[in-house]
Design a protein around this nucleic acid. Structure first.
Lengths: 357, 357
DNA sequence: TTGTAGGCGTTATCAC
DNA sequence: GTGATAACGCCTACAA
């Protein structure tokens, strides 16, 4: 600033100025270059005596290199950008934690951006992030805006997609094996005697994971045409009535057969549980249920909600690893890594002793 | 790199080099300074004709200024650091969302750091963040390490604490009114006839919000010595047995009186609900419950869990606003902003028709 | 109104 | 081994 460093400043603890490499060099009586070398683990090339002096100076000044300046100079920011569609979703948070740990271990910092389910902000987020020189992107987004991602990749920034594919994507992709997971859930329900099933999802259009789950469900129903009837329903947060109607008509169609719902994520499970409560239906007795995403509350609702647990931690870690590999120069066509889901059986899908209807 | 820009590079879309202000200047046939001025909204000082040329060049090159370089130069990064103790906690996430929105509106980017409940990482997080030149910090942490925060503040970075005070803090503080909220919960339980109460919290020592809640509970019990008996219990994730024992002895002490628990956050509510399920106790009938933090699943467990809803969104927004005010130069002694909690009554604390014991 | 030049804190390329 | 010195991309006196 216009305020020149006073003669006393070096002895004033509360000086607000940033301590720079020059200060260290001055104090140690060496050049900036030497300090820089010391910092970059090239201590081998330093006279022990000088190394000690530099070390002391750094310690006494409390010097920390400026990542900004480093980034500017070497074009590496040690920053990874992570965009999640919705931090409120337990799945996203769990993935985030896994990714975070992996990044940290590799010496990267995670810069988080939350879209709050407004897919329109995706472009903005990616641009903000990539203008901050993040070295790579982990995306759990819709990918409605192809431009932003393409641009990032064109600038040499690797991208890893988690859970949601983008149209025409040319990036690594990490996800649960949706087809297998749906198969697992539906056949479990079928085995338990639920022969009238309803697949319920948030609006499907454009969200790859939801599409894959729905498709898999339809396929399963097709393969078991004789013994199983199945339909699908899209539920929105606003249309509470629509969901209740769908459940009622499921019950009607079922007639003597046991009816069940297959929820495509935790948000839907919650909605269905609320609707069932209003209708006065009990899971396991009146209605079967299996839902994607294991949560802490799943065992506590009704007789316990059966779930498909996703390996969220692994998904996050793998996403980060893929990125690291790309960053360290790995060239390979885009990979797809699919992990299996795990069925957790609880009361909501157990075969209860027959009750007279 | 060693690869020099080829003659063709200007016509090759996929050039991986960063577009700099120099490129723009060159293309527009002006100096870097002119471009810079154009960018900094000083278009007033530019000849319209030149402004247009610069604008075109920027557009055709797809130029974006590098925030890193800007930050380096002007010492402003437009970055806010947010450290949460645990992204898994719904409370933290909700606060985060509020803060995020406010920051975004003010043109700041939120850089998130999650401690994953390892309070030892706090120092590391704050240092990482502040060496990235974040302009201010929002902290939802223990503050075990006084040094890190103090250092940040000494460097002129404003700090706002959310939910958890730090020892000897000299920073703005935003939180729910814990004393009032506990009073609300406990007196509601008392009014509903629960005269043997147990306050359950995660380990209290060193976490201000938990301490305040416990103190308030003790005070409430003291004020109602004749009609109400109350104790407190600290529960850890590992000691499942201890929690069950505590609940059993609560039941024993109660004798003819109605017993209830007051949970100090959502994590505890979940744990208590799990324990009650194992013991075969029903909320509202066998055991009363009110818990801090409103969640989506609260209405769905048992007869519905009564909660103290925190104004999370406001807390986040206020925290951000405080920071913005400090950033724009407001000097004022540290403020405390306390917002009231709201009681949401559900079946777990309702007065049921008497049942013969 | 516009251009020139210097510097923000680092690192890399030279010489010495 | 170590020290000048020139960048990195940008902003801002100051000069023109």
């Amino acid at each position: 600033m216009s305020q020149p460093r006073s003669i006393l400043s070096s002895s004033i603890e509360s000086d607000t100025q940033r301590v720079t490499i020059s200060d260290v060099a001055l104090k140690a009586g060496v050049s900036k270059a030497t300090v820089s070398r010391f910092l970059n683990r090239r201590e081998e090339l330093l006279t022990p005596e000088i190394a000690v002096r530099v070390e002391r100076a750094i310690a006494s000044l409390g010097y920390t290199p400026s990542p900004m300046a480093q980034a500017l100079k070497r074009g590496r920011s040690r920053l990874i950008g992570l965009v999640v569609a919705d931090v409120t979703n337990p799945f996203s948070v769990a993935v985030l934690r896994g990714a975070e740990r992996a990044c940290q271990d590799a010496g990267y910092l995670l810069m988080l951006f939350n879209l709050g389910n407004e897919s329109g902000r995706e472009r903005e987020a990616i641009q903000a992030l990539s203008s901050y020189q993040v070295e790579g992107l982990i995306l759990n987004t819709l990918g409605r805006d192809e431009g932003a991602v393409a641009q990032a990749m064109r600038h040499g920034k690797p991208v890893v997609l988690v859970d949601r594919r983008h149209a025409g994507m040319q990036a690594d992709f990490v996800s649960i094996d949706n087809a297998g997971a749906v198969q697992l859930a539906a056949s479990h329900l079928l085995d338990a005697g639920y022969r009238e099933q309803l697949f319920i999802s948030e609006p499907i259009s454009g969200v790859s994971s939801r599409m894959e789950r729905e498709t898999a469900f339809r396929a399963f129903v097709g393969e078991h045409a004789g013994v199983l009837a199945g339909r699908t329903f899209e539920s929105t947060a606003e249309d509470v009535q629509g969901l209740e109607d769908a459940l009622r008509s499921l019950m009607r169609r079922a007639g003597g057969r046991r009816p069940a719902v297959l929820c495509s994520n935790a948000v839907i499970s919650l909605r269905v549980a609320a609707a069932a409560a209003r209708l006065g239906w009990r899971f396991g007795a009146d209605l079967g249920l299996v839902g994607f995403d294991e949560t802490e509350w799943a065992p506590l609702i009704g007789p316990g909600l059966s779930t498909i647990a996703q390996p969220t931690d692994d998904l996050g870690r793998l996403a980060a690893s893929c990125l690291m590999e790309r960053l360290s120069g790995l060239v390979l066509p885009p990979r797809q890594i699919l992990l299996p889901g795990r069925l957790i059986e609880r009361g909501s899908s157990r075969l209860y002793e027959e009750v007279d209807d």
